[in-house]
Design a protein around this nucleic acid. Sequence first.
DNA 1: CCCGCCTATTTCTCTGACAAATCGTGCAAT
DNA 2: ATTGCACGATTTGTCAGAGAAATAGGCGGG
Lengths: 246, 246
Amino acid sequence: MRQRKEQTGPRTTGLNTTSMKRIHGSIAHDLGVDIVTGIYKPGDTLPGEIEFSEQLDVSRTAYREAVRILSAKGLVESRPRTGTRVTEKERWNLLDPDVLAWMFEGEPSVEFIRDLFELRMIIEPSAAELAAVRRSGADLARMGHALEEMARHGLATEAGREADQLFHHAILEASRNAPLMTLSSTISAAVSWTTIFKQRKRKLPRDPVADHRVLYEAIGNSDPVAARAAMVDLVRLAQEDTELSL
Amino acid sequence: MRQRKEQTGPRTTGLNTTSMKRIHGSIAHDLGVDIVTGIYKPGDTLPGEIEFSEQLDVSRTAYREAVRILSAKGLVESRPRTGTRVTEKERWNLLDPDVLAWMFEGEPSVEFIRDLFELRMIIEPSAAELAAVRRSGADLARMGHALEEMARHGLATEAGREADQLFHHAILEASRNAPLMTLSSTISAAVSWTTIFKQRKRKLPRDPVADHRVLYEAIGNSDPVAARAAMVDLVRLAQEDTELSL
DNA sequence: CCCGCCTATTTCTCTGACAAATCGTGCAAT
DNA sequence: ATTGCACGATTTGTCAGAGAAATAGGCGGG
């Protein structure tokens, strides 16, 4: 009887890219979570293929394909005789969407979340700046539509957060920089998980939709300086909304 | 007789993370290159498992593990009945070290290289700024050592470029931001390949080691503003050294 | 025209076997 | 005592074949 690790529960974000519908996928998921949450530490040896497959009643094939996935993301390294070892943290592809998602299935450290906000504060204002210069009318229309949705539902709702994601995504597309897009969409997804799990009540209630509108107008006016400033405000606000107890 | 795709030649950078010593690794490499260079386009279906394995005389197992690797990097998606399809470019993990390396086995487009420099110009100055605030004595010692090596060998030599990489790596470590590290080390590697393949003669000869020293001193003085400025200079210089015919 | 069943195709999983790589050991030569 | 080398044990890597599961597309009934 198959006896895989119990599922981690209802903390599903719906943003996972690796489908877990297949066995190799769920093994990769479970092992990946165990690695990034520190149950397996760098240098540790994963169970051998025979051992693992017999204990969990899956085939070596499925386990091996899972290890390939982890290896592709830099989490492990396999060699004959020594087995499959967890690699040093510096080698991990921390910006891989799956790795990041696995991080957030545990309780990411305060330092890591701080790092992500820091990175976001570096990336997104520049993206907004580029978007203000390069955006097309179609980009602007998408942002406007997302803005309407945010206004209609409010940022506290699921639909509102979705519209927020769409808004940011439109900005990134408008930046016309492919690597920047993949990077920033990953980061904003991670940050949104942070928001979901660690959000606290805002001390000074302020209209976040209005803040987004400021950014929208700056981009519409092709004003990169204002766009950067508006994005800085947005990110700072989000950061202040998160319990980090710095 | 095994009859894999002919190797792409002597353009080895020595920075590849995925070992190609195994069959599944070289299949993933070859297919990955074919995908990112556009031989297979988004929406195209990769050869079926039976077909591929028979034509190239490898086992289905090896081919499947290769596809797992590509799938983990967001390049393809497999489903029963429809086969394995190349995904849209937006889904590719462009910042995965392997994907980036595969890009540079072809002739990356001018736009893509421009994007990378743009990203580097966004990331590295901020990293230098953080490093100026957070660096330890050990960090500084490493940078100093790398600087000496650069001065001894000159930036035109292999050893010099290696020291340059070390210098930048030390700065990133000093920034104390893990995601930033993985990102920036990837980017600088990519940019260094660009430099190798597309470098042109500098019009106004200028001492690059001296420019690095300015950055080093700024970080030593814990002066984030000067550090940012120095890094901006360095990146701009590198960009001007690259044939982009903007 | 729409909905559910059926079928063909493809990936997915499993099994068992052998090949290849590599680390450690122990022996031999210096 | 140290160095070098062959060898054996262990683990991953590769292969072949069979069946299970999923799914797109066609077919038929309502």
